[in-house]
Design a protein around this nucleic acid. Sequence first.
DNA 1: AGATGATGCTCAAACGATTGCACTGTAGGT
DNA 2: ACCTACAGTGCAATCGTTTGAGCATCATCT
Lengths: 340, 340
Amino acid sequence: MKFEAVTIKDIAKELNLSTSTVSRALRDSYEISAETKKLVIEYAEKINYRPNPIALSLKERRTRSLGIIVCEIANSFFSQVIDGIESVAYSRGYNVTFLQSHESFDKEKLSLEYLASRSVDGLLISVSTETQDFSHITQLSNRGFPIVFFDRIVDEIDTHKVIVNNFKGVYTAINHLTGKGYKRIAYIANSEFLTLTKDRLNGYKKALSEADIEVDDSLIKYCNHGGMINDEVEKVLDEIFASKKKPDAIFASSDKLTTGCLHYFKKHNIKVPKNVALIGFSNNENSDLFNPALTVIKQPAMEMGEIATNYLLELIESKRPIKDFETRILDTEFIVREST
Amino acid sequence: MKFEAVTIKDIAKELNLSTSTVSRALRDSYEISAETKKLVIEYAEKINYRPNPIALSLKERRTRSLGIIVCEIANSFFSQVIDGIESVAYSRGYNVTFLQSHESFDKEKLSLEYLASRSVDGLLISVSTETQDFSHITQLSNRGFPIVFFDRIVDEIDTHKVIVNNFKGVYTAINHLTGKGYKRIAYIANSEFLTLTKDRLNGYKKALSEADIEVDDSLIKYCNHGGMINDEVEKVLDEIFASKKKPDAIFASSDKLTTGCLHYFKKHNIKVPKNVALIGFSNNENSDLFNPALTVIKQPAMEMGEIATNYLLELIESKRPIKDFETRILDTEFIVREST
DNA sequence: AGATGATGCTCAAACGATTGCACTGTAGGT
DNA sequence: ACCTACAGTGCAATCGTTTGAGCATCATCT
């Protein structure tokens, strides 16, 4: 079934005017007489005329829509970022198309191709954990396609970026743990390819060394699919807990990994914080309801989305190529609860 | 900064052909010689040509994109539905634009107008809690715009719908409570305007009457903003717990309301299930990690999204108007945990 | 030789809206 | 009476792509 909508032609035919006159009347051009304007506007109102955004896009060579690529919408952090993106985008007259990479490089690449082939004016992206080869993004960026990174950025591509202070966030958290006497602190990391994983590792190491604790590489485990693959978290935890020198605390680098740990603990009847303490990077709105209530490092997700979108719109709407790119670093919030 | 992309014209100019020949060559038309085809296809590949979807949309009078309106993406149930929608849509060559109503009638209306003015071929919608007047949807539907409802449907609009068996889901849950000896069971409902609220109420009443428990209207409370307004849940719980005859169990009708209850209990030091039992409609992936682990009625969210999308694509792609509409009713899953 | 037909290409219109330019008609000035 | 000015409107090109119709060119058949 075709849904036939009203066009400017229908108005022109009905009123015995040309389409140009109708167009000008609707845009309140000075060239059109008051009478004609009134006639046109009233009739347009009556038949509920709406300009066709597709035709406008073709004419103006812009779609007034933004593309977003994240690993998963069903993730508190990203859905909060998206809230921020949406609010800024709509207030500036843009709409928004989302794509999920589900942490797959191939999906990310396809999504990127799709969006970039002129169905959006610019792109906000947090790369997938799998992504090691950035050429698909680099190419676009080099051809002048506006891209802004948030959260999981790509160092070697020069454009606006918005992240949190990952180093400081983790440093504070680990510091808190060492201060409480924890000595064997494991780091369940996201993919080792992500910049933020490295930054966080540095914060972890710094805090340990300041507490005179030697870094034990067997306590640092990577989940290269971000916990998306079923037994990923279980496997690394098995490894950690199989060792003779068990950890007394765990730092999990994302929401998915944190809940993964909790599920593991529940299954193996490991008590938190009695047997092991837990701190996670988490924006889960219910982390205080967990058993136990979680100590978390929280990111200003909404703000991140807003800032990133403003950056992107700046790139899109700028008359001349932008050369000076900024990386905005936001502060995390550290919330101590029962799990430590 | 304008991002200039390659068009069919660039290819035509370079190869001294007409745009029609290039177009036909790319679509592998029989009218074009093998040599020319090869030439064109190779050059297109080389300069990375991608057809402009905007131009195609204008020509074909279809955008190959679907619109989704939900109250909130940051809600486990809806983000799971969206996962389902996305997977079907992309596999059938459609992309997807989301809009959040944030439970506001005005936002919903605006979003609808926007999407319908030809930027999407069809619409999937779960109406906001505030919506009482459906004329904005009815109008569109009557003009032949393809719409499919899911979860929060509108009875008086005749089109495909996908819901769960709300009656049975609640009946089973309340039955479970009465079987365990609970007698004063409160119902914290969503907006009273939603069809599902009424269906659930009927399940609630049936189960109570079968257990010879009289329905006490003071135990039935509506949250007309779905728990989006700060103190909404707190207020109704205050009312319920202020009464002399306190409830011994609570049934919460959505994820937001369920976590709202938990937050309230935590604040007022009410122990679950010792002081009061709790059952919620919830698709939260971590409801087993809560303190206590929650007994829940779970909806097949992903499946719902898939089915709804298939319905919508059927409406969009059908050659002739569809008159026979279906309402698909899915079964819920009842998961008993510690909270009851 | 002339008709027929296949082959391989180009022209131009169309989708819906915008906009520079051209055109018509009227009024006012000289 | 003629020129200028200008208000009010229409024509046609444009954005990128598709597609029906038309037009050469050449081989083949009678």
